[in-house]
Design a protein around this nucleic acid. Sequence first.
DNA 1: CACCCAACCAAGCAATTGCTTGGTAATGTA
DNA 2: TACATTACCAAGCAATTGCTTGGTTGGGTG
Lengths: 197, 197
Amino acid sequence: MPDSTATATRRDELLAIAARLFAEKGFKNTTVRDIADAAGILSGSLYHHFDSKESMVDEILSTFQTELFAAYDDVLASDADARTKIERAVRLSFAAIDRHPDEVAIFQNEADYLGTFPRFAYLAERNAQSRNVWMTLLTEGVETGALRADLDVTLTYRFVRDTVWVAVRWYRPGGGLSHEAIAAQYLTILLDGISHA
Amino acid sequence: MPDSTATATRRDELLAIAARLFAEKGFKNTTVRDIADAAGILSGSLYHHFDSKESMVDEILSTFQTELFAAYDDVLASDADARTKIERAVRLSFAAIDRHPDEVAIFQNEADYLGTFPRFAYLAERNAQSRNVWMTLLTEGVETGALRADLDVTLTYRFVRDTVWVAVRWYRPGGGLSHEAIAAQYLTILLDGISHA
DNA sequence: CACCCAACCAAGCAATTGCTTGGTAATGTA
DNA sequence: TACATTACCAAGCAATTGCTTGGTTGGGTG
């Protein structure tokens, strides 16, 4: 029996190495020789596993997005109240940063640029999908009275989206602060503000 | 008398063009030919005005940082109360995004990478300086009772810093929302939260 | 009129880039 | 033993990159 696990494992190893470098230095700024060096092989050998450097990023991003949006759909489909769903969506985002920091960083840093190529058109679609999720949750929150009535929902959406994901810039898995603790603190600030009650 | 104004003007034009491209596509991803094309000249002609592509970013970033931190120092030195100073610092940041969107974007996107080169060591220093400003303001806010006593000041600093600057990703000067309006909305969320009172 | 100089062109070079080609070593499988 | 497959190497090519060099132009200045 051919060990398809070992095959997939080596590929996944290389993908993980590439993801780390793309996240650290940027996609364009990472050469195939950088990736190969980090993996202990020659650059040409990468092309035994992948078609192109572009297809590496493509696979990294699309795999991650699929997983992430499945989780969002779960929250949307649940029958909890608006506030609970918002809290779950926030916590789930910080958990994603914890589990896939490189993927989140790549998406944050490169999506705008990569999105200009037809191949990465799905990035814009996912972005619209994410917007729908948050706008739905926030609108429901205002309508049910869980959130302030005078909220600019669009602006709040941007605020929440940006603040949650930008944490990938400083959060390091295994550091002093767990992603759950950060999510909790963030939710406190978001929901109740930093001002003295 | 040689017209030193015209000289400086052409240089500034070229710098502005480079800044726009660096902000749009990234530093590494923008070629000197891109810049020259956008300016209507040949790539080699850029080297009549600048030493290198690197020195262009350098000048763009250092000029902006000098202006920005002068404004922060103003706020810090004022004798207003903590909450007023925080509000002024926030408003001033959104004003900076309004006046220098390209420079802010470049700093946000490239500072981490450029900071690894000795030439751009000042970026890390400025970063530390910015941290000092915010930590001072927030700590003073907690001590004077303007802010909640249970705040994680370091975490709050990161949230404030990130949220303010990340707005450069979607804010467009001259759009429907003024930077003052955005700052006001943001301050409402930050200080009082989005939850129903 | 002779000259100056800022701004630019034309041409190209050396380094780096993504990627290709033909081959090899190791580990299985029939 | 013959064959297949996976993972890799060695060498190099074509395109792109930042930058250099020597020369030209055109609006001023003395």
